[in-house]
Structures are given as structure tokens and as C-alpha cells.
Write a protein that binds this DNA or RNA. Sequence first.
DNA 1: GCCAACGTTGGC
DNA 2: GCCAACGTTGGC
Length: 164
Amino acid sequence: MRYWLMKSEPEEVSIDDALAAPDSTVAWTGVRNYQARNFMRDAMHVGDGVLFYHSGCAVPGIVGLAEVASTAYPDPTQFDPASHYHDPKATPETPRWQMVDIRALRKTRVLPLAELRADPELAGLMILQRGSRLSITPVEAADWRHILRLLDRPATAADTRSKP
DNA sequence: GCCAACGTTGGC
DNA sequence: GCCAACGTTGGC
């Protein structure tokens, strides 16, 4: 059992989109980075935990929980000349790009990138490393547990005080 | 829109 | 194999 953080632009596929899909499952299409591909192909297993992250939006951060729902298989968009993700060097006989299915489990509160960055316990989180822009990164078990605790906690002390 | 950082490409 | 040029990511 491993843990992952997977970025998606909400305008492409948001946590709401994923939850609204059949079986809350979406094909994680469009990965065009070898390192990210290799994570999916070589290290992911069905049932692995996924932190669903929104990037390229007003408040980037973790917005939900998901799980890996399939092993890796060829991303069909690489063969489609009409697709934004078309890769002219890929053929069905020699595919380059793989993807997995991701099943959304639930929304969480938004846990902003800024809050992750401010937490000394998460200093080793791959997404926080300088210049890191990988869309799929492994998450250490200790970091996973820590983040789950943060997600179940109100964002600020002020929120706690304002509770009736 | 800007820009830092990184990945990929292709000439040599 | 080197490296300059270019493209992309993604926060701000």
C-alpha cells in the first residue's frame, strides 16, 4: 500500500467532476512526463491512497481523497491526432504513455499549498521541494497520516473558536 | 502576465 | 555526449 499526490487542474478534472463520474472513477489521461508515467506503470497498485490536488487555480491545494482503481494501461489520447495529448511518436504497437483509473472517495476541506508549506512536519513532501512540478508524486506514510489529520481539523484556530 | 525551474529536442 | 533553444508547469 502506497500513497500518492496527484495534481489536476480543476478546469480539466476537478474533485467534483470525479465524484460525479460513473463509480466516481476517471481515467487519469494526459500524463506526458516519463517520471510520472513510471510511477503509474511501475509503482502504483490498486487501492493505493491518493491525495487529490487542484493546481492552476486560485487556491492550489489538496481538496479530496481518492484511490488507485486500476493498474496502468495505454492512454488512448496519445494515438488520437485530434487530441491535445496526441503523441506522433506513439503507436498502438509501441505506446509511450500510460494511465491509471482513479476513484474519488470524498471531498475534504481545501488544504492549501501555503498551509502544507508552513508545516515543518511536511518539509520532506516531494511537492514542496524546490522546483518540483511533477504531477504525480509519492507520499511517505508518515506524511499521509499527518495530512489526514490536518484534513480532519479546522483550518485555523479562529474556526475552532467560532464554533457555537 | 510574469518568471523560475525543469524537461525535451535536435544540431553538432 | 554536450548544450543551447524552446516548451511547459504552476505559483504568485
